[in-house]
C-alpha cells in the first residue's frame, strides 16, 4: 500500500526528474545562443577593424593584417551549390529506384549501402579525394574540360587554367558524394507517403511509371523534396575536412572552377591554430560567425519546409 510518506517521496522524485530534464532541454537553446555570443565576442577586433568591408574584400594578408572574407564566402557558396547541382539528379534517381523500382528484397540492402556513404568520416573523403580522385581527375577529366569547354563563350572562363587536380570543382564533386545520402533519404521518405490512391488513379488513366513519378509524386511531395535539398545544401556549406584536403586553400579570386580556392570551414581548419596575431584570430572567428549565420539560416529554412510538408499531410 502507498503511504503518504512514500507518495511525497515519489512526488519529489517526479518533480526532480521533470526539472532536470526541462533545464537540460532549455540549456540546449542557451548553448545555441552562447555559441553565437562567443563567436561574436571573439571576432570583435576584426568587426571593428574592417566593418562591412570584411564581406566584400578579397584581401587575405596575415603579414600586413589585412583580411577580407570574399574569397572564402564565394568558395563556400560555389562548392556547396555545384555539389547540390550534381547531387540533386543522382539523389532523385536513387530515391525513385528505392521507392518505385527496386524489388522488395533488394530495397533494404541498397538503402543501407547508400546510407553508408553518409557514415564514412569526412576525413576519409578528403584523403581519397586528394590521393585517389584528384590525380585521375587531373589526368583524364580536366584536360578535356579545358580543351572543350574552356574555349566556349559564356561558360569558358569557368573551365580555364591548368589541370591541377585540386580546386573548387574537385571539392564540389567530393561534397556531392557526401550529401547524396541525405537528400536521397529525405526524398525516399516523402515519396514513401504519397497516397497509393493518387498513384493508382494516374496509372488507371494510362500514365507510365515515369509520368506518375514526375506528374504525381513530385508535385505532391514538392515541399518535402525542397526541404531535403536544402538540408543537403546546409550540410555541404559546413563540411570541413573533405574540403580542406581538396580545395587547394588558396586565397585568390579566380573565375575558373579548376583553380584552387578556399571555403570558410577549410580556412578555419588550416589556419586557426597558426594564427599569430589577435587580429588574425579575430578575422578567423568572424569567418566562423559568418558560417554560423549562413548554415543556421539554411538549415532552419530546410527544417521549416519539412515541418510544413509534415503539417500539410
Amino acid at each position: 500500500m502507498l503511504d503518504s510518506k512514500r507518495l511525497t517521496l515519489y512526488r519529489y522524485q517526479d518533480s526532480t526528474l521533470r526539472i532536470i530534464s526541462t533545464a537540460l532541454a532549455a540549456s540546449l537553446l542557451i548553448l545555441a545562443f552562447a555559441i553565437l555570443v562567443q563567436l561574436h565576442h571573439a571576432s570583435l577586433e576584426s568587426l571593428k577593424a574592417f566593418q562591412w568591408r570584411f564581406l566584400s574584400s578579397a584581401a587575405w594578408d596575415p603579414v600586413a593584417g589585412n583580411f577580407g572574407a570574399l574569397v572564402p564566402i564565394l568558395g563556400t557558396l560555389s562548392t556547396a551549390l555545384i555539389a547540390l547541382l550534381i547531387a540533386l539528379p543522382l539523389s532523385l534517381g536513387i530515391a525513385v529506384f528505392l521507392t518505385e523500382l527496386a524489388p522488395a528484397w533488394l530495397k533494404q540492402p541498397l538503402r543501407i549501402l547508400i546510407e553508408l556513404l553518409a557514415g564514412i568520416p569526412s576525413i576519409i573523403y578528403g584523403m581519397w579525394g586528394l590521393f585517389v580522385f584528384a590525380p585521375l581527375f587531373a589526368d583524364y577529366v580536366q584536360p578535356w574540360l579545358i580543351e572543350h569547354l574552356g574555349s566556349q563563350p559564356w561558360i569558358g572562363p569557368l573551365f580555364q587554367g591548368a589541370p591541377l587536380g585540386i580546386g573548387i570543382l574537385t571539392a564540389s564533386i567530393v561534397l556531392s558524394i557526401m550529401i547524396i545520402p541525405f537528400i536521397a533519404s529525405v526524398m525516399r521518405d516523402v515519396f514513401g507517403v504519397v497516397p497509393n490512391l493518387l498513384k493508382e488513379s494516374a496509372y488507371a488513366l494510362g500514365a507510365t511509371r515515369w509520368e506518375v513519378i514526375w506528374h504525381v509524386m513530385l508535385p505532391y511531395s514538392r515541399v518535402g523534396v525542397i526541404g531535403g535539398v536544402i538540408l543537403g545544401l546546409g550540410r555541404a556549406l559546413g563540411e570541413t575536412m573533405a574540403v580542406a584536403f581538396v580545395i587547394g586553400n588558396a586565397h585568390q579570386l579566380s573565375s575558373s572552377l579548376l583553380m584552387p580556392g578556399s571555403s570558410i570551414a577549410s580556412t578555419l581548419a588550416n589556419e586557426f591554430t597558426e594564427a599569430t596575431s589577435s587580429l588574425y584570430n579575430a578575422a578567423l572567428s568572424e569567418l566562423g560567425l559568418i558560417l554560423f549565420g549562413i548554415t543556421i539560416i539554411v538549415l532552419t529554412v530546410s527544417k521549416l519546409m519539412m515541418k510544413k510538408w509534415q503539417g500539410s499531410r
Binding site: L28, A32, I35, L39, A42, L231, G234, R235, L237, G238, E239, T240, A265, L268, A269, F272, S285, G288, L291, F292, T295, I296, L299, T300, K303
Partner: peptide, 12 residues
C-alpha cells in the same frame, strides 16, 4: 539544426 550544424564551429 544542431545535428546538421558544422562541427568545426563546436570546436571553435
Amino acid at each position: 539544426v544542431f545535428i546538421s550544424a558544422p562541427s568545426i564551429l563546436l570546436g571553435l
